[in-house]
Structures are given as structure tokens and as C-alpha cells.
Design a protein around this nucleic acid. Structure first.
Lengths: 206, 206, 206, 206
DNA sequence: AATGAATGAGTGTTCATTCAT
DNA sequence: AATGAATGAACACTCATTCAT
């Protein structure tokens, strides 16, 4: 199966396998998610997965692409709706939280991949293998840009942008990670609301 | 090898293996860290590791115990020095950051274990298998308690304690995780300083 | 696809695939030459190969047939031109060498098949599966016949024909095999000349 | 199992596996000789083979080393016994033939490895991976040296040494290869005798 | 206390072949 | 005539674990 020139049926199978892989990884973790188990989830032979994907890395790449693509589609419009940095920051937090909640399986899987994936030599997954177009789009949901804009407009106080970015992303994305994975009724909306207040207080010009 | 009644030499070997395992896991990730590679790091035969530890789970438990014990020893005194909730929160952030910086290998390894470790059936490492004494002590560095104290004393505003706990822990512990693992010169002190300001602004009574 | 009743286009495709297979086998060796790689060389789907050939064995047989047919066409006329056994022996050596040089890819491939090919049960390719007509023609370039003729005519001394056949064929066909496969400028003509002298001295009646 | 510091038992197992591998390769060919089949021949689990050898290449290297070592031990003394180039050439032919006959399984296996072995990228086995000490010793059974000596001493006529080397080696080693592998009663001694005469006639100064 | 040997279960991957279209 | 899809068998290799010494 060459990577270009895909048929409709092939695209459908690839998507089916990708979604099944996301489920399996979210459930049992990337390290335990073998191609065999993923194939079982789909209900096909293991070799079917390797017919549609060149190798496991190829499947992982597809999962990450799929997830980022959906994240971009969900979050970027929400950011674009806002004009002020204050509004964009609020939208960033809420949109990220909404996405994590509505795509929780996917989110859990990709996060797990990000943590667990290593090459045979132990190196982490680096962005190089990702599609350049996708990488460009990922840049459009960059928090640091929003924070810089807010400082330039005078909305935000004079914090270190890199550090504040780490802080907000750590809080938004990683804070409720375990609860989200475990508790199906986790109050993500409440969490997002609390974060909005928190970082509004923490960033606004005194 | 029964778990009680350990000789001095035996205890030393266990510690040596535990430290080697931490190094290996931090370097190549938990999933790639086989017992054989850990034994090679120590310079002994693979079976020596399994002579001193009942199985791999047992070794993992020891690593986690070791790390938490050190974290408690480093952080709890810093909290106890402070009387006010405001002071304790500041100390909590700074002490956690200091610990992450000075024990970065250990921290990276345990975090990786936390993310990657699953039982054969896919379950996450749950607190049940940890030593009850240790669990009690872990409670002593519980952030939620500090936050509640601050609300009761009137120092803090009326936020949701569980959510604020997630937010602060997400920011402190996970925000700079990748940078810390990759960049040996990461400005952790600067990050801690920014967090202190951020969460002071975010928590104090208007 | 029945083996008789082939259309023109079909025959052309078979030949195209056969030639591609020869190239691939010569380059990477029979063991590494999968049907898929051969199809890629042609620029068609893997299943096209198996549409035109019943199975891989069938393709191999065609390669061998093709190569022997060309060898016969090149060598037999050269032998027939000579009347004396001495002349035929000289022609045999030179014609074989010429053929190996001009059809080096083909020669390398067929030799590799001869060495590597085994049935699933481990048996070597045996002559039985070859076309009887072809086998009859192969007989026409049989060295032993030439040697016997020379002994009967008194040109050659009284050596063991079977042994001398093995010796000459080993020298002609296998001696420079590796050099021929590796060095594109190998002096095959010089080699053939040396062999002519060598076996003239070795066979002629004192 | 580290490559140095081997125990007695380990050495014995390695040898046992090496000999079994030689048998299996000689019987069914290198391409068909999987680690599993080799292990079955020994009567152990497949993983036992990979416990004693780092990987399949390691096993192949050991087979080749073993075979060359025995060939050197058998052939070099026979050459050293002779003083004249004529005597050395005769001894070279006879000793090689004797070795091929007495070590026919081994010889077949190594020849098959030499022809069939390729790296994943299709490259042939190159001498680089062989032990330097062994390579030096292999030089001691170099035919070209003998031929040059004979030309310098005036025993031999003025042929091209490289070509004559190819011719003799092709005749000696490859001529009766198939017969040797197939026919257990092949008259190797007779063949060697015929070759001695043949190349005596072909090389001596008129 | 330490270890070499062995092993079965599992991994990702390749391959020739079948079949419906 | 051509091909995309699917598959089971085989492959080399890794791993945690057991056991006798």
C-alpha cells in the first residue's frame, strides 16, 4: 500500500484502524498496545494493520496527525473569534478543556504516546517526522503568541512569557489528566471556569 | 529473599539496583528499561536483580518508594517552616521546583513510570500497592490541605479547592517537564518565581 | 491464466516481468527478491505478477528457461562452426565467457537461483521441472560430448571425461563469478584467453 | 551472554548449536535454515540459540570461523611440507579436495552461506566482519602466492597469476560442488588426481 | 549471595498466496 | 487484464521469570 493514491475503501480502513488504535492505547497504554491487540479490536488479522500502515511508527504518526488535526479544527476557530488577548486566553483555556472532554479517549492516547514513545535507541518522538503543513497549523494554537500580544496591548502584566506558557499549559492540559482518564463524570467545565478566573487574575495588569 | 530480615549487604545491593534502575529509566524510558539493561548498568547478572526483587513490579515499587521518601524529606520541612497558608503555598511551589531540579533524574523516571506503568491487564499503578506508612507521609505534602487552611483563615479567596489543586500541581509538576528532561540548563528557579507570583495573585483574597 | 493460449500482450507482460525479476535477483539476491519488489520494478501491482505466473516457482522456471534459451542461442552456433574437438573446446570456453560477460545480470541471477532456490521441503531445483524441449537443447551445449569426441579422434589425451568436464566448467563458469558480479570492468576476455591456453595444454595428446 | 568470559558449558552449547546449524544449512540451504529449525535440530527452544548467540549474524560468523579454522588446520600443513611450487600446487589441490570430502557438510554449508548471505540491504557478506587473526591465517592458504613463486623459480610458464588462480580455484572448489552435495560416493580422489595432472600440464614451463 | 542456562509468551515485520471485483 | 484487500505462516528478536547450582 503506497502512501499516496489511496482508494476510498483503504482510507476508510485506515481510519477504522486509527480509531481502534486510539481506543486500545487509551485503555491499556501505548506500551501494551500491540499491533495484534489493535487488529483484534478491529476484528481483522494483524497483517491487515500492516497492510494499511507501513509499520507501527506509521500508525502512530497517523494517530497523532488525526488528533492534532481535530484539535486544530476545534480550537483555532474559538481563538479567532476573540479580538483581545484577554478574550483569546479565556477562549484558549475553555476550548482546550472542551476538546479534552469531548475527545478524552483521543487525548489520553496521544498524551500517552507523547510520554511513552521512544525509538529503539531511546530517543523521544520529535516533531521532525510530523507533516510540515500540520506543524504550521499547530503553530496557530500557540499560547505564547497570545500572551505576547496581551503584553504588547497593555492588557497583561509583565510576566515571563515562556514560563507563563508552561504554567498555563501544565495547568490546562496536565492538571486533570488522571481524573479525566479515570472519572467519566469529572467536572471539566468547572475546572475550566476556575482556570479562567485564576489566569485572568494572574495575568492582568494590576 | 524475604522482604523482612534483610542484611546490610543485601540492603546496599537493593539500593544500588534501585538507583541504577532510576538512571536507566530516566535515560531510555520505562518501556525500554529491561531488567537486563538495569543489571548491566550495575555490572551484575540479570538474575541478581531478580534475586533481590521478587519481580519487576517489586523493583518499580521500590523506585517509587525511594523517590517519594526523598521528596517527603525535602518538601515537608519546608512547608512546616511556614505558618501562614500564603507562606506554605509559596514554600510548596519553591520546594517542589527545587526538588525537581536537584532530583531531576529520579523525577523523570518516576513520572515516566507513572505514565507508562501498567499491569499485564492494562491497569494503572494504583496507590493500593504502596506502603501505608508512605501513603500517610505523602498526605503531609498535600496541597489541598494548605489551600483549605488559607480559605479558612481568610487569606485566600473562595475558589474550588480540588480544581485549584489540580491547576497548581499541573503547573508546578508538569509544566516544565519536557524542558527539564531535555535542557540541563533550564531556568527552574525563574519558573518557580513566576509561579509564586502567579498563584499568589490567583489565590489571594481580592 | 492457462499456460497455453497466450495473447500477445500477455506474452509481453510475462517477458517484462521476467526481465525485471532477473534484474532484481541479480541486484539483491534471490532470497531478498520478493514478488512485491519485482512488481515494483515493473511498476505494477504485486498481484499482476501472480496473474501472469501461477506462483513464484512458475516465475523462477520462466527465468531459468529464458536464460538457458539465450545461452543456447549464443553458444550452440559457435560450437557448430568448429569441426575439430580442439576447436570446439576453444569455442566452448570463449562462447561461454562471452555470454557470461554480455549477459552478466542474467547469469548472476540464474546462478543465484541455482544456489538459493529450494522447495519448501528443502529440495534443490531439479531438472525435472524444466521443459523437455529445453533440456534436449541444453544437451547440445554439453561439454562431455566434445571431450569424448576429441579422445576418439586422437586430439585429446586419455583423461577422465566426467572429471575434466567438472574441471573446465568449474573454471569457466564459477572461477570469476564474484569478480564478474562486483567489478564491471573485469577482464573476462583475458580470462577466457588464459583458459583456452590452460585447457589446450591440459587436454592435448602429449 | 557476553562474547568474552565464556564458561565451559556455554562453549559446548555454542559448538553444539554451530554444528547443528551447519547440518541444517547443508541440508535445506541457508535461506530456509531458520533459527527455529536449528534449535529443533539441537532439541532446545529457539530462544536458547539466541541466548548463546547475539543474533543470527553472530551464529553465521561462528560457522564461518569454525569452518575456516578447520580448513586452515587441514590445508596449511600440507602446503608447508612442500618446498617447490610444483609440489605446493599439487598439495594445494589434493589438500583442498581432501578437506572438501572429509568436511563435505561443513563445506556445503559455508559455500551456501557465501552465496546466499546478504544483509537486509542486499549487500554480500564482506570479509570485514571476520576476525582479523583468522583473515591473516586465511592468507596462508593463498594460491596466488604459490603461483607467483613458481614463476619466479622458473618452474611455471608465464601465465596471468590472477586468472590462473581463478581457474584453479573454480575447478577445485566449484567444479564438483553439486555432485559432492548430492552423491555420497562421489570419486573426489579421482577428481583431485585428474586436476593435479591437468594443472601440472597447464602451468609447467614448456 | 550470586549466576548461567533455559524457556514460553510476546513483539513488529515480511511474504506468497487467495479472492472478489 | 489488472488490482486492492486480506490473511496465515513464518521470521528474527526481546523479555520477565524459573531453576539448579
Amino acid at each position: 500500500m503506497r502512501s499516496n493514491d489511496r482508494t476510498f475503501a483503504d482510507t476508510a480502513r485506515r481510519k477504522q484502524i486509527t480509531l481502534a488504535a486510539i481506543e486500545v492505547i487509551a485503555e491499556i497504554g501505548y506500551a501494551q498496545a500491540s499491533i495484534r491487540k489493535i487488529a483484534e479490536r478491529v476484528g481483522v488479522a494483524m497483517s491487515v494493520v500492516l497492510y494499511h500502515f507501513a509499520n507501527k511508527d506509521d500508525l502512530v504518526r497517523e494517530i497523532v496527525h488525526h488528533a492534532f488535526r481535530e484539535a486544530i479544527d476545534a480550537i483555532v476557530p474559538a481563538l479567532d473569534k476573540e479580538r483581545t488577548a484577554t478574550g483569546k486566553l479565556r477562549a484558549y483555556i475553555v476550548a482546550n478543556a472542551d476538546f479534552m472532554l469531548s475527545h478524552r479517549t483521543q487525548y489520553t492516547a496521544v498524551f500517552d504516546i507523547g510520554m511513552s514513545y521512544r525509538t529503539a535507541s531511546g530517543d523521544r518522538m520529535n516533531a521532525i517526522t510530523l507533516d510540515p503543513d500540520l506543524l504550521a497549523d499547530i503553530g496557530r494554537l500557540d499560547l505564547a503568541t497570545i500572551l505576547r500580544q496581551g503584553q504588547e496591548s497593555g492588557e497583561f502584566r509583565d510576566f515571563d512569557v515562556a514560563h507563563m506558557t508552561s504554567a498555563i499549559n501544565g495547568a490546562v492540559r496536565n492538571g486533570p489528566l488522571l481524573e479525566l482518564a479515570i472519572d467519566p463524570n469529572y467536572d471539566m467545565d468547572g475546572y475550566a471556569g476556575e482556570l479562567v478566573t485564576t489566569f485572568d487574575l494572574a495575568t492582568r495588569r494590576g
